[in-house]
């Protein structure tokens, strides 16, 4: 079974995000870069499938030079090889362009299942996996919390509002991973040593033959709106505090 995992390098969830004064983007100084947490679920699931069925796991990432570390992390977890799409013209690329780059690279290699994360925690878009599936002309199941693959079919569990769906799809397909799918493993020390020797192909937009013209553009970034300072509800007894709070919620906030 040939499995591809798309991984994006993103700021660590703890990172302090500072918008540049001119609103052109964020200040990248001091940021610790990590693998998108949802992509870790994708890598883990791919490795589990490979361990069960045999085959290869290929990691694909679009990003600047530093993204190579994230590819190496996935290789250290146990993937076989990497494709690093690195082109200054793709910096800050929109979802369609990113998916086009990924699709062009993935079309050239065998793929029974392609994993993406349900969303990248930097742009919080949740678009690339589905666009990629469309461009590859294969079905998708998004936000998957459980997956079984057998007899040329994938059966996935997905939570919707108020219910869990069990969805069956033919292969090849794109699966976008959600929390709950698995517990990602850590890279072992021997794994990290081996990863250094695993092959990583580097490609640019020209080699992939894709257009880099963005269809969705960020015109301005800004810090989040300030919240007005809150009130601490005082009182002697629990009952008194509770009564005060209910009064405030009813009369001031008007939410109950």
């Amino acid at each position: 079974m040939n499995i591809v995992v798309c991984v994006k390098q993103v700021p660590d969830t703890e990172a302090l995000i500072k918008v540049k004064a001119d609103g052109s983007g964020i200040d990248e100084g001091g940021i610790k870069w990590v693998m998108n947490p949802y992509d870790e679920f994708g890598v883990e699931e791919a490795l589990k499938l490979k361990e069960k069925n045999g085959g290869d796991v290929t990691i694909v990432s679009v990003g600047p030079a530093r993204a190579l570390e994230t590819i190496r992390t996935a290789l250290a977890m146990g993937a076989e090889k990497g494709i690093h799409i690195n082109d200054p013209a793709l910096e800050g690329a929109d979802a369609y362009t990113t998916a086009s780059a990924l699709a062009a690279a993935i079309k050239e290699i065998p793929h029974d299942i392609v994993f993406c994360g349900m969303r990248a925690i930097d742009d919080d878009a949740g678009q690339v996996g589905s666009i990629l599936a469309e461009l590859l002309g294969i079905p998708q199941v998004t936000v998957v919390t459980k997956l079984e693959v057998a007899d040329g079919k994938a059966t996935a569990v997905k939570a919707i509002e108020g219910a869990q769906l069990v969805i069956e799809t033919s292969l090849p397909c794109v699966i976008t991973a959600a929390k709950g799918l698995n517990e990602p493993r850590y890279a072992s020390l021997p794994g990290i040593m081996k990863a250094k020797k695993k092959p990583v192909d580097v490609k640019d937009a020209a080699a992939l033959g894709i257009s880099v013209a963005a269809k969705a553009k960020i015109v301005k970034m800004m810090p989040p709106p300030e919240r007005a300072p809150g009130k601490i509800v005082g009182g002697e007894e629990a009952a008194e505090k509770a009564a005060q709070l209910v009064k405030l919620l009813r009369e001031e906030a008007k939410v109950i």
Binding site: P11, T13, A15, L16, I17, V19, I26, Y96, I121, D122, D123, D124, A214, K215, A216, K217, I218, V219, K220, M221, M222, P223, P224, P225
Partner: peptide, 15 residues
């Protein structure tokens, strides 16, 4: 919102 609400962006769609 982007970055889990730590920043906001104005986006223009060209397509």
């Amino acid at each position: 919102p982007m970055y889990a609400g730590k920043a906001f962006a104005e986006v223009e769609v060209d397509g």
